[in-house]
Write a protein that binds this DNA or RNA. Sequence first.
DNA 1: TCACTAACTGAAAACGTTTTTCAATTAGCA
DNA 2: TGCTAATTGAAAAACGTTTTCAGTTAGTGA
Lengths: 155, 155
Amino acid sequence: MRLTTDKLADILREHNYKVTPQRRVVVDVLVHSNEHMTPSTIYEKARQKHPRVGLVTVYRTLDILSGLGLICELHTLDNNHSYLMRETDKPHHHLICSECGKVIDFTDCGLGALEKRLSLETGFEIEEHLLEFHGLCCHCQTITAKREKNEKTAT
Amino acid sequence: MRLTTDKLADILREHNYKVTPQRRVVVDVLVHSNEHMTPSTIYEKARQKHPRVGLVTVYRTLDILSGLGLICELHTLDNNHSYLMRETDKPHHHLICSECGKVIDFTDCGLGALEKRLSLETGFEIEEHLLEFHGLCCHCQTITAKREKNEKTAT
DNA sequence: TCACTAACTGAAAACGTTTTTCAATTAGCA
DNA sequence: TGCTAATTGAAAAACGTTTTCAGTTAGTGA
């Protein structure tokens, strides 16, 4: 179940954060996007809704939301931070379309056994793991296929 | 089997890269470290051996070595690029000590089944995955345990 | 051995992202 | 309504990384 902007505002208040217009706008941008976005993308979208939002405030709001576990931070391959609303309470991982940025969550990564094995073999006390899958979503596969076909005809 | 600086110099020459003193020093730093290092750490260590090395050259050399698949690039949690000599030809992943930076390679991540399942369920064409384990190595566990004990006695 | 040339170099500047600083503003409470 | 701590944006600083450019050099062929 996806949280609304109002519900998120309540959560912020519950944690003694003030709900300013700027924060509402940033939250709103996140709530209404299905793709992961970098801070500057969020900033641009936020400005369209409310010109009096600064990039600094975007960063600060993302910090707060991240700290409360309300948004996910993606460690994408090109090493840009990227954020999106968290869809589930459970620990999970992401499957990310490298073309359009669409993100699908999945739980049950099945790495428990591997983690145990590695821990035994190496003596490491494993604290966490980072797992992301990258590829093309259904939609972008067809687009890419079409484009490649056209390029072939062109040459 | 670990490659030597000389062997790596040969590989560079084979690929029509000149083997300059600066490149040798950067390679040497990498060869003689068991930990992953950021470009600026490599830069500092390189300068100790040979003061006439610029940070730019470190970046350029890392690019070359990375392009030839001779070093691994780590996507660490704090989003800093970090590099270390590649120990194996096989595709592999890393187990990283968050305290001392020690890295252990492992193959057989066993994610093939999960990848297939996700592909079927979501229609994604999965191109690659990013997997890293983070934790404390044997040695750092005991150090941390000692420190915590001392802190308890102190208070 | 030398001389040539493409490849390579470091310093400086440019770049994009993120953080810090600070004086002015404001949300939420009494 | 008025108070106050929290929040704001602009500007500057602080990063890590890349680009530019004129001077230098490794490796080749004579």
